[in-house]
């Protein structure tokens, strides 16, 4: 039922959403604990509503365009986006730039929000902080869902993958009630970077009329090439630091 494209699209949406929702959850948690849960929920709901609107408005519109018109431009955007994530994940894995520290971000946000505001009623500062966090982190997820979903009828599976990650992270967050520092964000970012760059190169090729040897299996060897290059770069950078 699912081919390599579908599996890669759904996995990319799920993993990317896990990373971004974990980051947004940290801010929403700080808002909830300092300005009250009603403010946190209101800001989160408003952010999610705008993100859902973007997917519902642009996804079907782009899906109506012929695949050949979409492959090249979406391939280029996926390639640029994926290479950005992969670059950052390589530099973090090699210890060149610091890992994303959810606990430190939570402490900072908590310190900024704890003074002022009103926990008893909806607090505009808290709503805005939660709203901004959900909207800004969610934009990347929305891009991935639309980019990997359009053209091959995978918009709904990709959106479901992203929504499942959202539910999973929020459910864990509701139980543990602290920043999710244990989520291996950089490993997930590395994996998503590899998937999106592979999608990008594959789609650019198809947009230019390339018939990839191995058809859909080409995604696997393109991903393998990016994975080996990424891991090799990490090893080289670590060795040069030693």
């Amino acid at each position: 039922m699912f081919n390599a494209h579908a599996i890669t699209a759904i996995s990319a949406a799920f993993l990317a959403s896990t990373v971004e929702v974990t980051e947004a959850y940290t801010i929403v948690l700080a808002v909830g604990l300092t300005r009250g849960w009603r403010s946190a929920a209101a800001g989160t709901a408003a952010g999610l509503a705008i993100l859902a609107f973007i997917v519902v408005a642009f996804g079907p519109m782009l899906s109506r365009l012929p695949l050949t018109a979409l492959q090249f431009p979406i391939g280029v955007l996926l390639l640029l986006f994926g290479m950005g994530w992969l670059r950052k994940a390589i530099l973090r894995s090699a210890g060149i730039i610091p890992l994303h520290d959810e606990s430190a971000i939570f402490e900072q946000e908590f310190a900024e929000l704890k003074d002022g505001g009103n926990r008893e009623r909806i607090d505009s500062g808290g709503v805005l902080a939660a709203f901004q966090s959900v909207l800004l982190e969610g934009l990347e997820v929305v891009f991935i869902v639309i980019a990997v979903g359009v053209g091959r009828g995978l918009l709904i599976p990709a959106a479901v993958g992203a929504a499942l990650a959202c539910i999973l992270v929020l459910a864990i967050g509701a139980v543990v009630h602290k920043p999710l520092s244990q989520v291996p964000e950089n490993t997930l970012k590395f994996a998503v970077g590899v998937m999106l760059t592979s999608f990008g190169v594959y789609w650019i090729g198809e947009g230019l009329g390339v018939v990839w040897p191995g058809s859909d299996f080409a995604l696997a060897y393109i991903a393998g090439a990016f994975l080996v290059s990424g891991l090799g770069s990490v090893a080289l950078l670590r060795r040069s630091a030693a």
Binding site: L79, T197, V201, I204, V210, V211, A225, F226, S233
Partner: peptide, 16 residues
Amino acid sequence: PTLVGFGVLLGCLSVL
């Protein structure tokens, strides 16, 4: 076209 496709792949790997 196949040469172009693999050229894009190798070029992007090198840049990264």
